Simulated scan of single mutants.
Amino acid sequence: MTDKSLPSPDTAADSATEDLPDVPEIQHEARLWRDDGWTARVIKNEDDDGWAVEMIKDGEAEPALVGPWTMGRDKKNPKPLDTGAFNTLVKTASEVLRRHEQQLHAMLHKRVTVDSPSGDGELAVTLDIVPSEDDPYALLTAFDAFGEQLAQVKVAPNFKLGKANATAWVADGFRRPG
């Protein structure tokens, strides 16, 4: 005998999504375009009397891009969004996100090459910072010319990787820097 008072997993999932607002995947209005994973919204510019546009990637809380928006012919209201403008905004916002990701990667991943103590080539030494609110740290790793890992130690996240530090670490037999 089954208990009909308990919802089935399918019914429970349906009722959980009923509370969410209906957000159409595609929406093309004068001040709001939603398409291709992005939302463009024309808003009042808080810095002056004009208008601004914000680009928000689906799933993100903050806009990837906020910029000035053109006035319409009446010099009071904003120019309506259109396909060309939306596509340009998506391209620009995507580029901003890509640059931000590259900058973050460059901050968290460093690499230098040093001469092997045996004199048979170069070693690559990398520093990979693992950001964490609770326990940030970094991994200092040495690789031979064939990409084989030779050693890895955990270091402080503010460890400064440079040729001198890497060379000293290699010369010290890959012991954890003090």
Rank of each mutant, 00 (worst) to 15 (best):
K4N: 13
L6R: 09
P7S: 03
A13P: 06
D14R: 09
E25V: 14
E25N: 13
E29Y: 08
G37M: 11
I43A: 02
N45V: 04
N45Q: 03
D47H: 09
D48S: 09
D49Y: 13
G50P: 06
G50C: 08
G50E: 00
A52T: 14
V53Q: 00
E54M: 07
K57I: 12
K57L: 12
K57G: 00
V66L: 10
G67W: 05
P68C: 13
T70W: 07
M71S: 02
G72H: 13
G72K: 08
R73P: 13
R73Q: 15
G84T: 13
A85S: 12
A85H: 07
E95D: 14
L97P: 04
Q102N: 02
Q102V: 06
Q102S: 07
M107R: 04
L108T: 14
S116P: 13
S118I: 15
L123P: 05
V125N: 03
D128S: 11
P131F: 05
D134Y: 07
P136F: 10
Y137C: 01
A138T: 04
A138C: 07
L139I: 12
L140T: 08
A142I: 02
A142Y: 02
F143E: 11
D144I: 05
A145T: 13
F146C: 06
Q149D: 00
L150G: 03
A156M: 08
P157E: 11
K160Y: 01
L161T: 06
G162Q: 11
A164D: 14
A171C: 00
